[in-house]
Write a protein that binds this DNA or RNA. Structure first.
Lengths: 186, 186
DNA sequence: TTTGTTTCGGGACGATCGTTCAGGTAGTTT
DNA sequence: AAACTACCTGAACGATCGTCCCGAAACAAA
């Protein structure tokens, strides 16, 4: 039982990954509305028919992109939490900094994530992937304050969404008191 | 200085409003991606060219729809708060009930609102309209607990967004403890 | 009535869309 | 070697798209 020695499949998987990455870049730049076979193909530097060969439809492409995106985000947040926890802090400053980063330099990526998020609201098959990062976080926290944690997660989502329609992204300093209040036990 | 006696303009304004309503219905049903001149016109029962006549471009149509939508929501929430306040309650149950309604019977409308919300993240000219209901709420609250109020607004947004990707909408009973925690002073 | 303004709507143009197809290439198996 | 499989890609089809044009109709002002 040997795994993945077929050079053809290896090339195919590689190109599939490149197309997904290109799709994510297109969504960051133009939104989900800007995703077409031709534009994604041009962004990836492959012929148009390559995207239709590897993904049987545009929906399949978006689904694969969301799944990939959600997986990345989940592992990213996983390590962020792990880092903050090992440092012993409750993490208000870390979270505020992460939010500021998500709304500043990584603003396009954040928009893309929420557009895919909303797409999952319309396409049930996307929901498990969209919920993945919530599940990862939930599994990491102790179970005796579940309500507080749900409030925390909702607050993060709300701050991100509201930050996206600000004319200029909020700084970590502006975010910190809000995050601090959000994390304060009562 | 007499106002609005021209029957032609009156008809025009009426049709414009009908087109906007049709656009909102299309967004609720198919999402922002499903908005085209032809589909909106068919939904409104008017010829295709009517939408291009009254709105110089598709963007204009979406902008007008978001503005109308935001105005409706703002006044709606305004009266909701006013009602809860006059009843003397802090409103946890009212808020939980409203969220359950937004995620249940009015789910399509809620999705439409958040899609337009995200559209505002990409189109700066939409942001004042998208921020309108936040501003209305902010102006109604006393200023000594601004941070708590920002947390409350963020939490509402987060609960709505997360509720949209649940397989079945959460009930008011499930939401109440979370809302209660969110409103609890500390 | 005549003139001017505003709304209405059929038709069409070029562009772009998703998707298909058929032939060609590279890699694996027998 | 031949047979088979998987990937690649140029060309094209029909559909739909946004938008424009231009004459007709409704209404107001003269």
């Amino acid at each position: 039982m040997k795994m993945q020695v077929d050079g053809r499949k290896a090339r195919g998987d590689k190109r599939r990954a490149e197309i997904i990455e290109a799709t994510l870049r297109v969504i960051e730049r133009d939104g989900v509305a800007g995703v077409t076979h031709r534009i994604v193909a041009a962004e990836a530097g492959v012929p148009t028919t390559s995207t239709t060969y590897h993904f049987s439809s545009l929906d399949d492409l978006l689904i694969a992109t969301l799944i990939s995106c959600a997986r990345d985000m989940a592992t990213e947040v996983y390590w962020m939490i792990d880092r903050a926890r090992s440092r012993g802090s409750r993490g208000a400053s870390e979270v505020a900094g992460l939010l500021a980063e998500a709304l500043g330099p990584r603003r396009g990526r954040t928009m893309a994530e929420y557009e895919l998020y909303l797409l999952a609201a319309r396409k049930p098959e996307l929901r498990p992937a969209a919920r993945r990062w919530l599940d990862v976080l939930t599994s990491m926290v102790r179970h005796d304050d579940e309500v507080a944690f749900r409030v925390f997660l909702a607050g993060i989502d709300g701050l991100l969404i509201q930050g996206l329609i600000d004319d200029e992204p909020p700084s970590a300093d502006e975010l910190r008191p809000v995050v601090d209040y959000l994390l304060k036990p009562r």
